[in-house]
Amino acid sequence: MESAVAPAASSVREPVLSLKGVSKGFGAVRALTDIDLDIHAGEVVAIVGDNGAGKSTLVKILAGVHPQDSGTITFDGQVVSIPTPTASRALGIATVFQDLALCDNLDVVSNLFLGREITHGTLDEEEMEQRAWSLLRQLSAKIPSVRIAVASLSGGQRQTVAIARSLIGEPSVVILDEPTAALGVAQTAEVLNLIERLRERGLGVLIISHNMADVQAVADRVVVLRLGRNNGDFHVADVSYEEIISAITGATDNVVTRRASAHAVAAAADAHGTAPDVAAPAPGRADVTEPVPDNATGADNPDDGSKEIR
């Protein structure tokens, strides 16, 4: 009995990053309302939702661009505040925005260590190059040379450089905003493989994406935002594509689903013998309770109803 209980107890993990009741407004506009989100080490969580669902606002709160109005953010079990991007990076959260923020005229090494150059009186180019190759090999990155200008790289390779740069500070959580947007099939596969490498390194990964195929290919959980609120938290292995889309669009609560629910309730009541005594007329039949009109105006026939109807 003890051995059976132990694995269940050990399977409960504390999230490395947790949001509880986080809300954010811009004037009269409520961008986020009571958002809950947990990210565990070694887990890929996808945030999905329609335009205006609050995805970008959530990312900016975690990146230190916007402070939340209410709610708590917990990192490694401690309640924290993220007032600036510097505080976010120092905490252990690395964010790669969709524009990547790379310097096209600089080579890969210079981009990786931009603002974090290794110096020993002067720039230590050799050590930075060695560390760049080591990091890229750990990520199985396909970069022809670390001395090539970033402007010469493909979209997938540029995304790789941006993600590799985010790992220089040894973060615990990496946030990727639309990492496969505008990429071809081969480049998308390269980025998805890179996300797998991040998970294998034990990092918590949060990706924002509109591509359901990419989400189902790489994510462990899918968190749906709709109109600034939580509208679903699914394990990818247990949910279908249609269920995710329904949560995104709100199709789980509409006239059709409410009618189907009402029919199900009526059928259950009928099965238990509690159906109403007066049933609705069968389709295609109706009981005539009023005189049949005699003309196109709908006036009733003034005689005794013996007039022949043609």
Rank of each mutant, 00 (worst) to 15 (best):
S166E: 07
A9Y: 11
N211A: 04
D214H: 07
V80M: 13
S140N: 14
V79H: 10
S3G: 11
I143Y: 10
S70K: 13
N51P: 00
V5P: 12
H263T: 14
A280H: 05
D238R: 13
A262C: 15
G77F: 07
I118M: 09
R258V: 10
V239Y: 05
T74G: 05
M212G: 06
D214M: 06
L58A: 00
I168C: 06
G228L: 01
R137F: 15
F97H: 02
L32Y: 08
H235C: 08
A279F: 12
F97V: 00
Q187D: 14
H263L: 14
D69P: 12
D69L: 11
C103T: 10
L91D: 04
D107A: 01
D38P: 13
S3F: 11
N111Q: 09
N211C: 01
S166Q: 02
D214R: 05
H120Q: 15
G64P: 09
S81P: 03
V109H: 01
V173H: 01
A247S: 01
V222Q: 04
I73H: 01
T95I: 06
R259A: 15
I195S: 02
R310Y: 03
G64Y: 05
T72M: 13
V223T: 03
V255S: 12
K20V: 02
G92L: 10
T274K: 05
R229S: 05
H66P: 01
N111S: 07
G184P: 11
R131D: 11
V191I: 03
V223G: 02
N105G: 15
G42I: 04
A41Q: 08
A141K: 02
L37G: 06
A280S: 07
G52M: 00
L139M: 04
N230M: 14
I73C: 03
I73Y: 02
D34N: 13
